[in-house]
Design a protein around this nucleic acid. Structure first.
Lengths: 339, 339
DNA sequence: CTGAAAGCGCTAACAT
DNA sequence: ATGTTAGCGCTTTCAG
């Protein structure tokens, strides 16, 4: 493995000049730069990021903390972050937030503290005050996706409003027996997202004077399987069956649709289902959904990080960035059929 | 940010002793070790991995190169790798292999060469000889998932055998009009996987004396949407319709099932579908599948890496590790119905 | 068992 | 525009 001194020797300049020529910092004559660059190329020199980071304090690496990898929304966010980082010349170190308490502490107290990252992006994670304090002590940019809260810069849609919006869509079609299948209050690692969506559902139902008691809600695992299982139970009895369902996420919605079809229920003529997220499979299942764009959110988070990284002593970063959502109706919801 | 010298001062020992106490290398009396450890704890000291790596040459970080993040198989592999690495105290730097030529070169020639990783895990990637040479020049462990080939240690199922197995399963049920919907020869970033599966299908069909010309194959994008679209076309005409389908992956299989149902075809009574991979949604869709365990494969790859990392000057690593597969039949395939 | 000292490979003043 | 020098924070001989 060749070092900078090898390049310097070959190009007959000092290490300092070689460094300047290669990094682009400081003045180097066109001529020597070329000599240095070609010398580096011939011996296949690549800077040791460790040595470089040690002296500059910058690692060109950002840590991403995310609760799941293999769920559509999270995968999309991660992809968005990855492309944006690579484009900016940054590495991405991936940390999946484990549900295990000890593991989680180890992540924050050891892995993230090793001076390995220039910034942290936390996706859909509710940080404890202690964790915020730790991250803050690093004095590095931290941006959250799926906020707001915790007092760190965050980026998200307004989940209460989103859920209210989709619920109102069904109400405006004339549905009155509407049910919400969504994430439970339990697994709160998901940043209150599902509690907020549930709140939005309630709000819309109450505003319309429709019932939203315990009958109108069923908890599900936030996944296709979860939606499937919950819907199978919820739709079993034809007499108590709702005419429309607000799903806590598109995955739950898709599970619901599959379950409904398996029960012989026509979708959407006998049951309208609406979801939130803009899942890539929504068209395939004829699902109406309120699209957010997780990939773009990932990129946007990287933009925020880069901004802070470049103008560090700038104005205090704004705390909450609303993210635009758009309602994509795909001709799949209908008015309730007259029975 | 406190440094080792701070700990040393607080504990009234030299930096050398502090280092030994904290890292566990070399003799330190029980008593001083405790003093050092508690000193470190009180000021919240965590080693700077850069400084440490600079001198030791070890980074406790492994690079993972993967073509997709948001596909079930890859997500599972990634999760498996992530947990195993974290458990071993290693970081994971994620690189998604872009289809763009320039980006790909930049990844191999710049990102991976910065002495940032102790090892590389390449998932379902067909490396060019040049890339293999580059990686080899790092003199670090490299393990592939989804091989064999390229002359690096790899780990995979035998895709030809797997496809032949599922095809034979359908043949043994009495099906004669069997079609294969699978990945095209084009997108070869996926490590020949789909060409091999196609070969396995052919092999089984030919051995049974069944037709496997162009009518028996349809190319699809390897995704649910791809399977959906391809199946919609393939199943449109009731007269030429097959009675069974071998899908190139479970995602394609699920797309096929959804399409079939949309066309009013009963699955499995009028159409048997069989997939490969063991997708978590297979049960929900009543899909028969040949399960491989991507999560476990990820962990296994990490094991291989750790083995090599620990006993570096050991025997040359074996080149191909077969991975066990199991046929999970879920009561969903049937004999062809008599028409 | 512990301390002193020499770097790992690089960058950033500071001179020139 | 280029070279000299002094570290970044840590580990590791080498002496004691």
């Amino acid at each position: 493995m060749s070092a900078l001194s090898d390049v310097a020797r070959l190009a007959q300049v000092s290490k300092a000049t070689a460094s300047r020529a290669l990094s682009g910092n400081g003045y180097v004559s066109e001529l020597t730069r070329n000599r240095v660059v070609s010398a580096a190329a011939t011996i296949g020199y690549v800077v040791s990021s460790n040595a470089s980071s040690l002296v500059t304090g910058r690692t060109r690496n950002v840590g991403v903390v995310i609760p799941h990898i293999n769920r559509w929304y999270f995968g999309e966010v991660l992809e968005g972050i990855e492309s944006a980082l690579i484009a900016a010349g940054y590495d991405l170190t991936l940390y999946r937030l484990s549900e295990d308490e000890t593991e989680r502490r180890r992540l924050f107290e050891y892995f993230l503290m090793r001076k390995r990252v220039d910034a942290v992006i936390a996706v859909s994670i509710e940080l404890t005050p202690h964790e915020v304090r730790l991250l803050r002590s690093l004095d590095k940019p931290i941006v959250g996706i799926g906020g707001p809260g915790d007092g760190i810069a965050a980026l998200s849609i307004d989940d209460v409003a989103a859920a209210a919006l989709v619920t109102n869509h069904l109400i405006s079609l004339g549905h009155t027996r509407i049910m919400h299948i969504g994430g439970s209050r339990q697994k709160e690692m998901d940043f209150r997202v599902h509690t907020q969506r549930q709140a939005g559902f309630r709000k819309a139902m109450e505003a319309a004077g429709l019932p939203c008691g315990t009958d109108a809600f069923r908890a599900a695992d936030v996944s296709m399987q979860g939606g499937f299982a919950a819907a199978l139970a919820a739709l079993a009895d034809p007499r108590s069956r709702p005419t429309a369902i607000v799903a806590g996420s598109d995955e739950v919605a898709i599970g619901t649709i599959v379950a409904a079809r398996q029960l012989g229920i026509q979708v959407p003529s006998q049951l309208s289902v609406i979801g939130i997220d803009g899942h890539e499979l929504s068209a395939m299942f004829g699902l109406t959904t309120l699209a957010q764009h997780p990939n773009a959110q990932g990129k946007m988070a990287v933009d925020l990080v880069m901004d802070e990284l470049l103008q560090r002593p700038g104005a205090p970063a704004p705390t909450w960035h609303a993210y635009p959502v758009s309602l994509e109706v795909r001709d799949s919801t209908t008015a309730p059929s007259v029975e």
